[in-house]
């Protein structure tokens, strides 16, 4: 069976000349969790945005390669059309409607999906939000905002849910709670998940497969357990190795880092 999402050797260019992705290929099988890891500015967000079509709103476009979702080519389509196909993107920084109450946030998104949307779904996975129904979303805690953002995406009955840095700026305990929610909805709703994270440790805990992006290219990929074991990943992304200190280590680190790029 072909994977649900296939990204084949795409290049993405912003503002006619700025090349951000330089030939990226990933594949996301149905009902799996795939993680895209990498440092700030590596291109994780651009990758997710070019799948969802949102690059267009930033005046970017896919100039080479193709993106196939459920057998359809979707590169450079309108974000609204892509979301209609069941690909929902939860942007980083907890994109919710801050001026609206929690309830109104849910109503607004439910409006888009008509009878398909079941507002209860949000409260079922994130019961904490029920008590905050009538407060303005801007006044929720960071964790609650992230839960609301994921909850809103759920209303669209996504087949492929793309989460961009769900752990960003959250306390470890809250990160855990958010990730529990993600795991549960993956298991109970059967949603396929594509996860972009800097928090590699957390992402590799729930992912089946992972890609590491640096500088707009994939430098490493493999099943999650293998990435967890890998020496380089441990050192650069999981922070497991103890620092030996000194300039020599820094130079060596730089060389090894270079090797990937």
């Amino acid at each position: 069976m072909p994977p649900l999402l296939e990204v084949n050797n795409i290049e993405v260019v912003y503002h006619p000349y700025i090349l951000v992705l330089k030939g990226i290929s990933i594949s996301v099988p149905e009902k799996s969790i795939v993680a895209v890891l990498g440092p700030n500015g590596a291109g994780k967000t651009t990758l997710l945005k070019s799948i969802s079509g949102l690059v267009k709103l930033d005046r970017g476009r896919v100039t080479r390669g193709w993106i196939k979702y459920a057998g359809m080519r979707i590169e450079n389509r309108d974000p609204e059309d892509v979301s209609r196909l069941g690909v929902i993107y939860v942007a980083e920084g907890r994109r919710i409607f801050r001026e609206l109450t929690v309830e109104e946030n849910i109503e607004a998104v439910a409006y888009a999906w008509g009878v398909l949307a079941d507002p209860e779904l949000v409260y079922r996975y994130f019961p904490r939000l029920r008590a905050r129904r009538r407060s303005r979303a801007g006044y929720l805690s960071g964790g609650e905002q992230q839960m609301l953002a994921i909850g809103l995406a759920l209303l669209a009955k996504p087949r492929l849910l793309m989460l961009d840095e769900p752990s960003l700026g959250l306390a470890p305990k809250v990160v855990h709670e958010v990730y529990e929610g993600i795991k549960r909805l993956h298991e109970e709703e059967g949603v396929t998940i594509l996860l972009a994270e800097q928090n590699a440790r957390k992402a590799l805990e729930i992912a089946d497969y992972g890609y590491i992006i640096e500088n707009g290219k994939i430098v490493m990929e493999g099943p999650a357990e293998r990435l967890r074991e890998d020496k380089d990943v441990q050192e650069f992304y999981l922070g497991l190795k103890k620092a030996e200190g000194g300039g020599y280590r820094a130079a060596k680190w730089y060389r090894r880092k270079k090797r990937w790029v």
Binding site: E80, R98, V109
Partner: peptide
Amino acid sequence: EDPYGASAYGLP
């Protein structure tokens, strides 16, 4: 409030 976020959530 946020046309960008709204289109990601499928609002027309």
